[in-house]
Design a protein around this nucleic acid. Structure first.
Lengths: 223, 223
DNA sequence: TACCTGTAGATTGTTGACACTGCGAGATTC
DNA sequence: GAATCTCGCAGTGTCAACAATCTACAGGTA
């Protein structure tokens, strides 16, 4: 019997709570929902055109990702990020991404850096366009590509939630990339160190880049 | 009116899904529920004496912690861990705990190592008792204390899920700590390096300890 | 006999309704 | 006038029933 020769892509029916969580996450990290405000289950359910069951499941996910905060019998609120949170997010990101660097380098030649080069090019393009939003998107895409290259599903998952929090910080504070050229350079330097296989240099540059990020955000918070 | 002078401990009403998740997690990591088996919502709901709503929320949490696996319209199954998973878990743990080491050392004298010393003593005591279960419990408690000492809530949270997975591995494979004395020593050496403030030594010893752990589990898997 | 098709049972996904909790506005008392 | 109490409302927590989906098995056909 011929079962193939057609090569259809298998249908992947996304679950309703998954779709809702995705849309909610977008709204949260883009700042469409202001920090600290309460999310009414009934209102959201009506907006999404579903009942409260699936909506609650979506909220559960975002709760565990740390984007929301729950008070029993009171409701669910958008988490507000303090200075300490910002520092902690970047500490955790450093931990994950440093480990990813080590893993990529330890693979040596078998590592696939093409996605990283692509991400770096996209960042340069975004910087040239001048749009702040697309610059920070490309920035975080680079970091995501870095951890992807490590091939560790758990590192990828943990970083995903950290990147969502990072996006929340950036949009909430409307942090300006005062010097776009520097940011692009920092990423390119990391990639170059990676390509030449010099782990220590790459780690150092990543660390510096992270520290820059924290300082930029914390300066924005003070205003 | 006098509101104080009584000093009662405030009542912390745990949420129902939270309590269910806790019990389920215990059953999963202790191996009471065999890997790969399906978890029937109706059956579990009856067992816990609640309806399927709260139970589904509890499952959601464990799903996101990576202890369960969901197939849409099919059901939820206990995740079975492959060799690759074991390696990945330990890679991720190394990433988190190495970062924690760095943070503890960078604090210098202000770091609170008393909990770590306590955990180390407990481990030695457990080793003397000879019970395998309490040895691995004390082992993981030490690592938890290490990350706690870092003071980073996000590292703590990420490690918590990794430790749950580690426990699942250990009980599923009934991994034997063939040489208990060595395990105790490895932990003590890490603590000593930490106390003397020599970061590089501590990192090296942690790395070795982790590698030992992976090898022990992967050898058990082959059987 | 081998294969396909249709149906039955079981399980998950979703819904609307009910119960309980916490907050705030208004009434009441000193 | 200020503090306290009570009631109502808005919201979450929980439940039982309904709808949709999948698997397995029985029946029919070439």
């Amino acid at each position: 019997m011929v079962t193939s020769d057609w090569e259809f892509t298998p249908v992947v029916q996304q679950s309703t709570p998954g779709l809702i969580a995705q849309q909610l996450r977008e709204s949260l990290i883009s700042g469409k929902i202001t920090a600290g405000s309460q999310l009414s289950e009934a209102a959201l359910a009506k907006a999404f055109g579903v009942s409260r069951g699936p909506l609650r499941e979506a909220m559960q996910r975002l709760l565990q990702e740390g984007l929301l905060r729950s008070e029993r019998n009171r409701g669910i609120f958008v988490k507000e990020l303090t200075q300490d949170d910002i520092a902690d997010i970047y500490d955790a990101r450093s931990a994950i991404e440093s480990a990813a660097l080590r893993m990529v380098v330890s693979r040596g030649a078998s590592a696939d850096l093409s996605k990283l080069r692509q991400a770096c090019a996209n960042l340069a393009k975004a910087a040239a366009s001048g749009e702040r939003q697309s610059v920070s998107d490309a920035d975080l895409s680079f970091h995501a590509a870095l951890v992807n290259a490590s091939g560790s599903p758990r590192l990828v998952r943990m970083q995903a939630t950290l990147l969502a929090e990072t996006r929340m910080c950036i949009t909430a504070l409307e942090a300006t990339q005062d010097d776009v050229a520097t940011v692009v350079d920092e990423h390119r330097l990391i990639l170059e160190a990676l390509e030449s296989g010099s782990l220590e240099t790459a780690l150092e540059r990543l660390q510096d880049h992270m520290q820059d990020g924290v300082m930029r955000l914390q300066r924005a918070e003070e205003v």
